[in-house]
Amino acid sequence: MMIKPKIGICTVVMKNLNLGEDDSVCYQKELITSVKRLGFDIVVAEKFISTPEISKETSALFKKEDVDAYILFVGTFTDDKRVMPLITGAGKPVIVWAHDISAFNVSITGAQNIMPNIYDLGLEYRFIYGNFDDKAALRDLYTFSRACAIKNKLSKTKIGYVGGHPSIMTCQTADEIAVKRIFGITLIDFGNEDIITGRQKIGRIESEKKWEEIKKLAGKVKASKENGIITSSTLIYILKMIKEYSLDAISINCFPNLKGQVCIPISLLNDMGIPSACEGDLNSTILMYILHNLSGLSLHLYLSAEWVGVEYTLSPTRSAIFPPLKSVSPVSII
């Protein structure tokens, strides 16, 4: 499913200074409509921020709702102190939106009061200037919001990392601490032996049934039944791992002990919407997970047979090529 950003919306105004603060009632309604049209979920702070106390309440609301980012709409000129409890307390990227709908609101000057503090504090932000139907402004909002949503989602993501990287592929080496620091991803480490011993506990009848299901997805099958059982029991056990550990994606080092035995399982996992990569390619797994969430589509580490016009061959014992069995035809299993 394509990721759907959850965006907070709040408005700051200064009262009793003849700045037309009442205009912001209509402004915020228009902003809400525009954000909804982008397909985002929204959390609206009903009280306009006119005091530091309301700013603090708004911060608590956005933290409680775990928004991906929030729009601070500058309805009128403002000083910085009334919004700083929100900016420093929410712990979320801020989108400062200024406008020129009415010169009496002096919105842009209010934004200039706020922006230096955000910059100097090193906080993540975006500045948008324009009306609510401005295509450039909405495009900027759309792009930044989706990036914030991905970042927030990654901080809660768990990826299975099976067998590390192949000894013959130093380029696949991953820094697990850096992955946590940069993306916030939690890696759950397994050894190849976990799959090898775990699949042996899968019943023969269950494995045979799954193998028959797999064969129906192919144009023709030349693989032996025993090799097919290895493939199907491997898939069944990997699915059990994913469920037990609540994994969102998985990277498997297939060389040498699982060589050719995870190709079809990985293809089917990707068909199921579970980003998966072989050869311990953790970097590709992370990228596939990001692209899957941005596109809502299943991704595969292959060149589509539909693009190059060739017949793919899948082997439960030796092939390292795994197109999506459900969507590419013809496919042979040998």
Rank of each mutant, 00 (worst) to 15 (best):
F132G: 03
Y289A: 01
I274N: 02
G219V: 03
F322R: 08
I202W: 06
I196Q: 04
N270E: 09
E206M: 10
A249V: 10
V25P: 00
L297M: 12
K210H: 02
E306H: 14
D134G: 07
P93Y: 03
M84E: 09
L297D: 09
V35K: 02
Y119P: 00
T285I: 05
M241H: 13
K201C: 07
C26Q: 12
L61Q: 04
W97R: 00
P93K: 02
V221G: 05
T51P: 01
M84I: 08
D66F: 08
M241V: 12
T313Q: 12
F190A: 05
I195L: 12
G75M: 10
K135F: 12
M1H: 11
K29E: 15
N117M: 04
C278R: 13
L138M: 13
S319Q: 13
P330K: 12
L268V: 11
D133N: 10
K210G: 05
R82Y: 04
T78P: 03
G160W: 06
A223V: 10
I128G: 01
V94K: 00
V328D: 10
Y289K: 03
L303M: 09
G184L: 09
I42T: 15
A249F: 07
V13G: 00
D140H: 03
G203Q: 14
D140M: 11
K6F: 02
S284G: 06
T186Y: 03
K153E: 11
K240M: 08
A137V: 13
N105T: 15
S102E: 13
E193H: 11
G163T: 09
